[in-house]
């Protein structure tokens, strides 16, 4: 059980902000930290890791990691941390990056095997692709058999296909090691696939804390489709108007009325929804 009750004043791009989080996490949970950028997600992660100071208390099991009097240094917290930009040691090969944490050859071999990095073990980080680098970073974070795994938007720099692949690997690792995991993520599908619980932060406070289904599925049960997207263009075809909307990685055309066209602006975020019909799912 991890008990977090912390407070910190942040000076961000939007002025002063109070980060105030009271959160209990059970062992083995996979938590996604969501929220707009600047809401304090990364700072919360760094406070748990001991990389940043804060007021309040932090208790992990029977150990006190932080209270008014002292703070346990990050080296002693046995935490695995996956950085957004990988942060691999450039002077070491893949294997050396792992062994730097702990001279545990068996574990290193197991992790490299699980993530398909076996053949790249003697390569330097500079010669790897983004996806490969993040895999190494993930393996490295698991090398000290951490009690908590923290990930700061680990997949945001990767392309969609690579993201899906790595999500699977993160899930496999989580199932194999049962590590309590906290991941910062913006991607709803990623959160849905991986996390058992979503904590939504806004301006330094928790505004939602529930299952991904409850937090993310805005249309549950009403037989209604609703997508958010960006309006790219409005074109006139004969007498009708067609709006082109980008949803996720896909572009769709929607017929709209001239009145609707007048009220929409190109470049703005729009919601595309339809009601009362039975959608058909098929294989590609």
């Amino acid at each position: 059980m991890i008990a977090i009750d912390i407070c910190k004043t942040l000076y961000g791009s939007m002025g002063e902000m109070e980060l105030n989080v009271d959160l209990q996490i059970n062992e083995g949970e996979f938590i996604a930290l969501a929220g707009e950028s600047g809401s304090g997600k990364t700072t919360l992660l760094r406070i748990i890791a001991g990389l940043e100071k804060a007021r309040g208390t932090l208790k992990v099991g029977d150990e006190i990691w932080m209270d008014a009097k002292h703070a346990l240094p990050p080296q002693k917290r046995k935490i695995g941390f996956v950085f957004q930009d990988y942060a691999l040691f450039p002077n070491m090969t893949v294997l050396q990056n792992l062994l730097f944490v702990q001279k545990d050859h068996a574990l290193a071999a197991q992790l490299l095997e699980m993530t398909g990095l076996d053949e790249l073990r003697d390569r330097l980080p500079a010669t790897l692709s983004g996806g490969q680098k993040q895999r190494v970073s993930l393996c490295r974070a698991m090398m000290n058999r951490p009690g908590i795994l923290l990930m700061d938007e680990p997949l945001s720099a990767l392309d969609p296909a690579m993201r899906t692949k790595l999500q699977q690997e993160i899930l496999t690792l989580h199932k194999n090691f049962g590590t309590t995991t906290i991941m910062v993520s913006h991607d709803p599908s990623e959160i849905y696939r991986l996390a058992g619980r979503v904590v939504m932060l806004d301006h330094g406070r928790i505004i939602q804390d529930d299952t991904p289904k409850k937090v993310l599925l805005k249309t549950s049960g009403s037989q209604k489709f609703s997508f958010e997207g960006e309006l790219l263009d409005i074109v006139q075809v004969d007498i009708i108007m067609v709006a082109i909307v980008s949803i996720g990685q896909q572009l769709v055309e929607v017929v709209i009325s001239p009145e609707e066209a007048a009220s929409l602006h190109i470049g703005e975020r729009v919601t595309l929804s339809t009601k009362a019909f039975a959608p058909i799912l098929s294989n590609r």
Partner: peptide, 15 residues
């Protein structure tokens, strides 16, 4: 030298 890489070493238990 990038702060993040140093932090990665701290998280690896190194002084």
């Amino acid at each position: 030298f990038p702060e993040e890489i140093k932090e990665a070493a701290y998280m690896s238990g190194k002084s």
